[in-house]
Design a protein around this nucleic acid. Sequence first.
RNA 1: GCGUCUGUCGUCAAGCGGUUAAGACCUCGGAUUGUGGUUCCGAUAUACAUGGGUUCGAAUCCCAUCAGACGCCCCA
Length: 411
Amino acid sequence: MTKIINVIKGTHDILPQEIDKWHILEENALKIFTRYGYKEIRTPIFESTELFARGVGDTTDIVNKEMYTFEKSDKSLTLRPENTAGVVRSYIENGMARLSSPVKLWYKGPMFRYERPQKGRQRQFHQVGIEMFGIKEPTADAEVIFMAVNYLKSLGLNNLEVEINSLGCPKCREEFKNKLKTVLKWEFNNLCEDCQNRYEKNPLRLLDCKVESCKTIFEKPEIQKVIQSDFICEECAEHFVKLKSYLDKLGIKYTVNKLLVRGLDYYNRTVFEIKSNNLGSQNAVCGGGRYDSLVKNLGGEDTPAVGWAMGMERLNSLLPLPEPKKLDGYIVSNSPVNAFELAEELRDNGYNIEFDLSNKKFTKQLEKASKVANYAIILGEDEINAGNVSVKNLATGEQKTVSIQELRSML
RNA sequence: GCGUCUGUCGUCAAGCGGUUAAGACCUCGGAUUGUGGUUCCGAUAUACAUGGGUUCGAAUCCCAUCAGACGCCCCA
């Protein structure tokens, strides 16, 4: 036998038996986001490599280690590892700054990251996400979080934990980073290898280390003092306080997690995640935040923005498997032409109909009907001659002989 | 990139050094040539990831490779 070709590591087929769940995710996204005034946008799956380097940030792992990059006629192209950069590019390129503010966009589609696959993480995975441009007030942060929660509710997912934090603005964050680095300088050689890397790349992440020796170091009073200090400046603090008060008044339960940092460079002020306890170690279904400087960094006008993305495979694994849908009717007949005519007529009227295409025996056809359909529509010689059909309810066994007109009202 | 575990029919699995390598489900056919979902019978003619080794003898033990799962890093 010829050698078969397998799917690529970290990718997988979405098979017919699970596609209903994907439709639920997509239909609810359209429905809920539309209620909040969002329009769908579809951007290309590959973009110029530079977009991600500048947009996502060239200190991030996503850009440094995880991109699918290829060359084509002297251009460096990359399969999108996330979609915020692409949407921002489109926002700028299509002059959406001229649209009346806020501009609200949502998307869904595949993303690509070259990572080691594990539970809740694939190399090709799907995100559904939203971006809102033009509002600097914390009302935007609140609405965006509220919509995320509502979307999850619409999927029947209620027991999820919302975590928020504020990273401050570039200025106050820089100060905090420096303080942290100063106080940890003496301990640098005692930190684990990962922490030594984080020390330069993303000092805020140091605090989340799981290595015991590092935890012990961080517990020292002089270091705790820095960690516990509220580093964010007055304006940033006010923004955060307002956001929290909105969430409180809207009845959204959340916890403030000072260790919530997020790895994408573009975030400032508000960051948030929504987590589930039923997902294993990759437990965030939603991640997002404010990114006020990204539009400008990518060459647009200075425009504040907030957004989030959800991992659709992760959402999917939280959804119960819906009952597979059956056909409305299966025509049992040994007269293909008559079966065709009846099937087409019923299909034109919106019914889902199949019939046997291989001229199987009557009992076989009926057996098939009982597996795939709610009704068997029996169109044998007797019925054809009499100009009617026999309709059998396959759940109850009830059978009636009716005219074709009557048949329509039965299904 | 690192670590741990796992690879037996389309699917789920038994077997743990000597078996014709169970069984169940699915699919297909028959009992049943116009009445299914229950039942009974049968079929699927080359399922032990691949390549080496140890042994009289390997699906079973060892090594390598490949693949998968989970975890670390990082992220949805």
